[in-house]
Simulated scan of single mutants.
Amino acid sequence: MAKNKDSKTVNRTGLFDMDKMTITSEDKNGVYTFDVKSLLQDFDGSNISLTVASDFEPSHLVEE
């Protein structure tokens, strides 16, 4: 990304469904589903950086 420029960030956290390309989250106010393609549409034609993160169970546990 170029320096001295404003940036736009979109952050959605929840369960990712690859087939539907959605992210679904739930809180005390209800269930929300976000369309990933629609979220990225505003960036069409732009130079972007994409980061995906997920918590996961470790594959190798060392017992103490």
Rank of each mutant, 00 (worst) to 15 (best):
M1P: 13
M1N: 08
M1R: 07
M1V: 07
A2Y: 04
A2M: 05
A2C: 05
A2K: 13
K3W: 05
N4T: 08
K5P: 09
K5F: 10
K5Q: 15
D6H: 10
D6W: 07
S7N: 04
S7V: 09
S7R: 12
S7D: 03
S7H: 10
S7C: 03
K8D: 11
K8Q: 13
K8P: 00
K8Y: 14
T9R: 13
V10L: 03
V10G: 06
V10I: 12
N11H: 11
N11V: 08
N11E: 14
R12W: 05
T13P: 04
T13E: 08
T13Q: 05
T13W: 01
T13R: 14
G14T: 11
G14D: 11
L15Q: 12
L15S: 11
F16D: 00
M18L: 12
M18S: 13
M18H: 12
D19F: 02
K20R: 13
K20H: 08
K20L: 13
K20P: 01
K20I: 02
K20C: 01
M21K: 14
M21Q: 15
M21P: 02
T22L: 01
T22M: 01
T22N: 09
I23T: 03
I23V: 13
I23N: 07
I23D: 04
T24I: 03
S25Q: 11
S25K: 11
S25C: 04
S25P: 01
S25F: 06
E26C: 03
E26H: 08
E26G: 02
E26A: 10
D27H: 02
D27Y: 05
D27M: 01
K28H: 02
K28L: 00
N29Y: 11
N29T: 00
G30D: 09
G30C: 04
G30T: 06
V31D: 05
V31C: 03
T33M: 04
F34V: 15
F34C: 07
F34Y: 15
F34S: 15
D35T: 13
V36D: 03
V36F: 02
K37Y: 12
K37E: 12
S38M: 15
S38W: 12
S38Q: 15
S38K: 15
L39R: 09
L39N: 11
L40Q: 11
Q41E: 15
Q41M: 14
D42L: 06
D42K: 12
D42I: 13
G45D: 02
S46D: 12
S46F: 11
S46Q: 14
S46C: 13
S46M: 15
N47D: 07
I48N: 06
I48G: 01
I48S: 00
S49H: 03
S49E: 02
S49F: 01
S49L: 04
L50E: 02
T51N: 12
V52Y: 06
V52T: 09
V52P: 01
V52R: 04
A53H: 09
S54P: 00
S54D: 06
D55N: 12
D55L: 10
D55A: 09
F56C: 00
E57T: 09
E57W: 03
E57P: 00
P58Q: 09
P58H: 08
P58A: 10
P58S: 07
P58E: 11
S59K: 13
S59G: 06
S59P: 01
L61R: 08
L61P: 00
L61A: 02
L61K: 10
V62Y: 05
V62F: 01
E63T: 03
E63P: 00
E64Y: 00
E64N: 02
E64K: 05
E64F: 01
